[in-house]
Design a protein around this nucleic acid. Structure first.
Lengths: 278, 278
DNA sequence: CTCATGTAAGTAAGTACTTACTTTTAACTT
DNA sequence: AAGTTAAAAGTAAGTACTTACTTACATGAG
């Protein structure tokens, strides 16, 4: 009897519990391991997004989840590991039930418009989709900014999986349309930065500063329409443009899309389950 | 994690109050009260901008300032009070030695261009000035975002004194140029949001995510030029526009600056000890 | 001398994380 | 179907350390 507790490690066998249905908590608050684990991550995500990593205590998370503090450390060796687990949780939960990031979902949703080369539909679709997502999942943006400020890798991974991806596919589309003479020659990446700046900054402002919309009250639909209008007019080729006009001021042709092939592997999860590493 | 104190950085700008002899820390580390107070705020600002309010300990600040912890509490009753003191410090230090905020300084710098109605100079000036400021004073942006996430009033004050101000004077300029038929009718506030979105998001990206400029490497001058070009083309009136075109979608002429008198009071940060909340 | 400037050593209430122990569950007997 | 049992799920009370803030006392400039 005395050794019993010793064997209980955070070591969690990946095999799903036996065949019998581990349906959600029956009468008491007790849950199956996997279920509790996922609930903890979900709760932690919310609390971390509200107060940041350093500002959140494990006790708060436990209380929010309705369990004792010790339970957290049965599932996660450290608070850090719980934080990092959000990455995988988000990767599997990002949008719908598929394994795709927000950027991938957006890309898919405008794929048809891209093929039709309907510029307005492409940019307006991206804009609306992104801003809608931010509005429905403010946790995400807060988490993104908190982790960036706190210097956590969470931030870089989210960034790469979303913004960076958007740079790639929007940049490619712009470049294509430039070759067709529809868009004037500007560095496509600058254009993407300008556009994503409008979108992200609009969402961030709504979430962080102008929560009561006292400065600017506009629906996501209208905002998407206006931002798109400004951008498309802003990068449209001159009407009377000859083929090789140097246009106005732009120097154009900075380096073409820099991709980083070494970056994207399978879902990065460096969390070794080994004991502490402090 | 620098264990040793980083020695007393002479954080005092040459504009020390000339009235009473300040005895600027001659030989020993001893300072006059006012001087030390200002030094503490300056150091605290840096540390808070790096780790946030909750993530910063008074011990860290003391070490960074090269004094013992107790000194902080001789000058400030609480850690919170030290944080809030940043507001006044920034208000008096914002730009140059004048009492003006960054937005005011920017406004002044393009005042002449506004009178000349040189659109390109106005927007490019604002852009360059703002991005340059962010690059030289990254503390400011980090502090702004941290305090917004942490729900501190610091954020609202900084926001009102800077961004809100920019909305007012840029919005007014755009409205004027619309009446003159140079810009097409769009809600000026939407235009300002689009433009400031490009600028702020560009700075934020450089500071928080793309610190090595691997995604997009562009000088502030070039960025200001490109962003301005996109915006000006984006809001230019149609060349063949009649006077009373119904145009696209905009409602135009929302009321100029709306202020919300019923702002929420200080709610977020619990004073002193964090009491239990069940 | 005097008093503001400074310090070192507290203090009580957190903090992340552990340990010892109890309860529930579900598979395996009989 | 009922009883046995090993282990997972859960808790409460620690541990060693940190945190914001205090207190008692030293020191040097005017």
């Amino acid at each position: 009897m005395s050794k019993q507790a010793e064997t209980v490690r955070a070591e969690n066998p990946p095999a799903t519990p036996p065949s019998t249905s581990p349906v959600s908590s029956s009468s008491s608050g007790r849950m199956a391991g996997e279920e509790r684990r996922r609930q903890l991550v979900a709760v932690a995500m919310r609390v971390f997004s509200e107060r940041g990593f350093r500002g959140t205590t494990t006790k708060e998370i436990a209380q929010a989840a309705g369990v004792s503090e010790g339970i957290i450390f049965r599932h996660f060796a450290t608070k850090e590991e719980l934080y990092t687990a959000i990455i995988d949780y988000k990767a599997c939960t990002g949008v719908s039930h598929l394994n795709q990031s927000v950027a991938e979902a957006i890309h898919c949703s405008v794929a048809e418009a891209i093929q039709r080369k309907d510029d307005r539909a492409v940019f307006e679709g991206v804009a609306l989709h992104l801003m809608q997502h931010h509005e429905n999942d403010t946790e995400f943006l807060r988490l993104l900014f908190y982790s960036a400020l706190e210097g956590h890798q969470l931030s870089q991974i989210f960034w790469d999986r979303n913004v960076r991806l958007m740079y790639e596919f929007l940049g490619a589309y712009i470049r294509e349309r430039q070759h067709e003479g529809v868009f004037r020659p500007v560095d496509p990446l600058v254009v993407v930065r300008a556009f994503s700046g409008m979108l992200i900054h609009h969402s961030v402002t709504n979430i962080l500063w102008d929560t009561s919309r006292s400065l600017l009250d506009i629906s996501n639909e209208a905002a998407a329409r206006e931002f798109t209008e400004i951008l498309l007019r802003g990068i449209a080729a001159d009407a009377n443009a000859a083929t090789s006009s140097a246009t106005t001021t732009t120097t154009t042709t900075t380096q073409p899309t820099r991709r980083d092939p070494s970056k994207r592997g399978a879902a990065a999860l460096p969390t070794g389950r080994a004991k502490k590493k402090k």
